[in-house]
Design a protein around this nucleic acid. Sequence first.
DNA 1: CGTTGCTTTTTGTGATCACAAGCGTGCTAT
DNA 2: ATAGCACGCTTGTGATCACAAAAAGCAACG
Lengths: 218, 218
Amino acid sequence: MQSQAKPTDPQAETAAHDFVYRKLRSRIIWGEIAPGESLTLRGIGKEYSVSMTPAREAVRRLAAEGALSISASGRVSTPVLSNERIEELAALRALIEVELASRALPRAHMALIDRLQAINHNMTEIVQNRDAVGYIRANLEFHRALYLRAQAPAMLALIETVWLQMGPTMRALYTRLQRSEAPHYHRLIIAALKAGDEPGLRLAVRSDVTQGLKMLAG
Amino acid sequence: MQSQAKPTDPQAETAAHDFVYRKLRSRIIWGEIAPGESLTLRGIGKEYSVSMTPAREAVRRLAAEGALSISASGRVSTPVLSNERIEELAALRALIEVELASRALPRAHMALIDRLQAINHNMTEIVQNRDAVGYIRANLEFHRALYLRAQAPAMLALIETVWLQMGPTMRALYTRLQRSEAPHYHRLIIAALKAGDEPGLRLAVRSDVTQGLKMLAG
DNA sequence: CGTTGCTTTTTGTGATCACAAGCGTGCTAT
DNA sequence: ATAGCACGCTTGTGATCACAAAAAGCAACG
């Protein structure tokens, strides 16, 4: 029995390809998939109970965002980043995130600062549990919460594609590193926000973003 | 008679979906399609003699890059940008292109400067012919030639997606504007390159990129 | 004359299939 | 024992179809 097309909704709940896209995207951006790990369309389809068609569309979309790489023969895998590429992506993060933070600063209310502090507090616990995925997840949540205040959707979308590209590599980096404490630059960010200190905020964000890179080079 | 699959090559020449993607991408980035213009999968397929499948994949890829927007019901059209979004995209151009130019500077040979001058010279002719598409095309060629020297593929890829998003709107802007001369900031860029003047180069690029925006606001 | 209702057409979505290339495995020959 | 080759399985690609929803065209009514 082939029930053809979507049995119930068109894309009211969310289309199948979009559902698969979101699921995969989360796994990638949170570093749940190792760099260079390969995926198959049929495998993805089976995992989410859809046919190859929506799986293919989700994969194409992610590939367009740099979250997946497709070989010449069409094989799908998470990208393995060279050191040069990591440096570039970190530079992009520094460039764009500093701008976002700067734009968010005048709009930062107390509620935002409270939320950032709460997230940051959670991170100290996560770190003690040696939970790399949880760490990345909370870290992104921290940055996203801040940048949302910038009211700059295009910039936010762009920086998220950069995060996406770094996802698998970040996980490899963090598990190798085993941090012992929450990022202390986050506290500098919060302090600068409280003080309304723009230069300090820019520096703190830039430092936080490029800090991981130094460990890689060292 | 259904000849199923690709009759000759797998993706040796380039897969059908990739072919369609490239064609559409060119048309969009050069401003050959007006903002808000709508496309259909069957129409695209017919235009390039392929079925809906590769057309759909090309469209998804372009949508992921922001070159096309897809309505809640799945309808495909070129995006209509709000003024706020244009300002954001221009800010992103300024941010990233200044960085790219800066990285290209130490690598800029005489051959590059000659090429930039040649492109710029062509633009004066194109302007007199009132050829908006040709203008955008040459302008992008100018910038791309410069940024290629930066040896920063991730940054270049990112900025190209920004250009893509602005494509249709740029055309609307330039036809409305009817420039009378080639962009004079290009000459400042070339001069700064020759002199090895980094601050001057950064300022010239930033001015060139944000100049179009001012006309919009005025 | 405009508006509301229904019917027809258009359009995107997802499943399925045939096909070809990739890739690995195991066998054979030297 | 190792190198080369052939076979089979895996995997991506593209065409086609059935379906549902949205859009457009059309008619009848206020």
